[in-house]
Design a protein around this nucleic acid. Structure first.
Length: 562
RNA sequence: GCGCCCGUAGCUCAGCUGGAUAGAGUAUUGGUUUCCGAAACCAAGGGUCGUGGGUUCGAAUCCCGCCGGGCGCACCA
């Protein structure tokens, strides 16, 4: 794969220059070469002189001048200037951007991909909702973030495994089973015999009905037929879990999200992983018995208090399978693993990491990476909708997809940094759906398609090679700006993937669309001069390609018409 | 009380591995179409970047205190 843009080239330049000028006994400061905010400062700026000024005991501007003088000649950089307090500004030549447009068209769907991951495997765990009810907005946020993150990592060369971890046998599932069983017996939530902590939602009645009807459900990872026997808890449990898993699968598919692995908590018990974990922890002397329970000294590994592993009744706390599950990831070869979860679970981070350290099996301290998203507040009719599974008051992901649309919902949930709280105003999202930025971006894509349709109607045939050959005819401010924007795409992909922050891509796509719309409004593309026309079409088709690539990484469609 | 996250324009939010005059959408006001889709474009007004210190040549960005909001602090999952 070719070197992404010029940043790396420039970096090499600065390195050469630094070596030429820096006294041998001085340590190299960590300078950066980055995009400038305004074009008057050129395309890239370097802060090396500012950082070097103190150790070298020189004025930064003088140093900058010396650095510039030492720069080797090259054909990418057109002009170098010293500016402000001592920045070195690089102005790229037009040819560099023309080459980038050609590269977009040449690489097509592959444009913007990089080899950072170099075929290594990363396990990305997200959603991981227990099958006790439909997915809600919070799960949607996790799904949008986790899935886009996975796509970004895949675009960075990683072999991505998407995992969904769920509990099919614990207390909550027992509770689900009791609820369905009660419904099957004709007991409703307000009746006397209703389970104390039963799930009250209407969907429970649906499951019960289907169970009595002897229905068969097929989820992504299991298939169960009901026998209709109200006394058969095992069958009710299996059927209910399958039913809710199927519901979740449907919602996730409608949302454009797929998983490679469904991992059952019960399997950790079944194949001895829990026992192995307890054994490892005990053998390494990190446990002790107190009050009839088995404790892990997580405080030795940064937790704020020790944790119970095995309760006095002999069962394990959820913390143990959590550690066992991560151990399984490590043993399955995920040297990089990402766990995406809602902020209401962040409390488990410290103890799971402590548990993994206590295993003494070579897991590095910082493993795995965690990506947290803060809570989503849902507003409807000017009021906050309280989400409660038991009460059955609920805004499901399905509702949102149906009411607001898949793309708009995904964009809304992905466009903001995960660690800020999110207010999802349903009325706003519905009534102003046309103002949702996702349509603005998609419209740019559709517009290019429309231009090409028009070109055909008018009898113009687009000659791409001819257009690329004449890119030098594109010298207006708007054309320059659009080319600069296009060339940033590979950098954005790399940055967003490295920072595990897909919202950076969402924000940038809007900027790209804006640059395009501005261009569209200021220039006629289908002009009689074939050289100019083909050049403009080449630029615009390249823009469409990058929009498409970017939208795809966010799991959004790129419509030809809207 | 302890821990994590957040506090930037009326509203929703970017920017935060320190950098050159603080950005966008939306809302408000005014303009743009005999011409490729006006789901668009252009322009104006609107900010003590919660607050007080500190580090630095330079702080919205890093550190500490305080104020305000969210989430979590079980032998629940």
């Amino acid at each position: 794969m070719k070197q992404p843009l010029h940043a790396l080239v420039l970096q090499a330049f600065a390195e050469l220059t630094r070596q030429a000028i820096l006294p041998a006994d001085l340590a190299a400061p960590a300078f950066v070469i980055e995009r400038t905010r305004s074009r008057e400062h050129g395309d890239f700026a370097c802060n090396l002189a500012l950082l070097l000024a103190k150790p070298a005991r020189c004025k930064p501007r003088d140093l900058a001048e010396k650095l510039v003088a030492a720069l080797p000649a090259n054909d990418v950089v057109d002009k170098v200037e010293v500016a402000g307090p001592g920045f070195i500004n690089f102005f790229l030549g037009a040819a560099a951007y023309h080459a980038e447009v050609a590269r977009v068209l040449d690489e097509g769907d592959a444009y913007g991909r990089n080899t950072r991951g170099a075929g290594r495997t990363v396990g990305v765990e997200f959603v991981s909702a227990n099958p006790t009810g439909p997915l809600h907005v919070g799960h949607g946020r996790g799904a949008a973030i986790g899935d886009s993150l996975s796509r970004l990592l895949a675009a960075s060369g990683w072999n991505v495994k998407r995992e969904f971890y769920y509990n099919d046998a614990g207390v909550q599932i027992a509770n689900l089973t009791l609820s369905v069983q009660a419904r099957a017996r004709g007991i409703t939530p307000d009746d006397a015999g209703w389970p104390e902590k039963g799930y009250r939602g209407d969907y429970i009645a649906e499951v019960a009905r289907a169970f009595l009807d002897g229905a068969t459900v097929t989820a992504d990872d299991r298939k169960v037929t009901a026998n209709g026997d109200v006394e058969d808890s095992d069958n009710i449990r299996a059927f209910s879990v399958a039913w809710l898993r199927r519901e979740q699968d449907q919602d996730l598919k409608a949302f454009g999200v797929d998983f490679d692995v469904y991992f059952l908590e019960s399997s950790l018990y079944a194949d001895g992983k829990v026992a192995e974990t307890v054994d490892l922890l005990t053998r390494h002397g990190h446990t002790y018995e107190k009050d009839g329970a088995l404790w892990l000294k997580t405080t030795d590994f940064g937790d704020d208090k020790d944790r119970v592993m095995r309760k006095s009744d002999g069962t394990f706390t959820y913390f143990v399978p959590d550690v066992a599950y991560h151990l399984s990831k490590w043993q399955r070869g995920y040297r990089k693993a990402i766990t995406e979860l809602g902020a209401d679970h962040h409390g488990s981070l410290a103890r799971v990491k402590a548990g993994l350290q206590a295993l003494d099996c070579g897991i590095p301290k910082g493993w795995p990476d965690y990506v947290l998203h803060q809570m989503v507040t849902v507003m409807r009719g000017g009021e906050e909708v309280k989400i409660s599974k038991r009460a059955g008051s609920y805004v499901t992901l399905r509702d949102l997809i149906e009411e607001v649309g898949r793309d708009a919902t995904r964009y809304f949930l992905i466009a903001r940094k995960g660690d800020s709280q999110l207010t999802f105003d349903i009325d706003l999202a519905r009534s102003q759906s046309n103002d949702n930025p996702v349509y603005y971006i998609q419209y740019a894509h559709a517009r290019v398609c429309s231009v090409l349709r028009q070109a055909e109607e008018k009898g113009f045939t687009f000659d791409q090679a001819h257009g690329l050959h004449n890119l030098s005819r594109l010298d207006s401010e708007h054309e320059q700006a659009l080319m600069v924007e296009l060339s940033r795409y590979p950098e954005i992909v790399e940055t967003a993937a490295a920072a595990l922050e897909p919202h950076l891509l969402a924000a940038w796509l809007r900027e790209l669309a804006q640059a395009f719309h501005t261009y569209y409004n200021s220039h006629q593309f289908l002009v009689d001069d074939a050289a100019v026309r083909d050049a403009r079409l080449a630029l615009v088709v390249a823009t469409r390609q990058v929009l498409r690539n970017g939208l795809d990484l966010l799991g959004l469609s790129a419509p030809d018409k809207m």
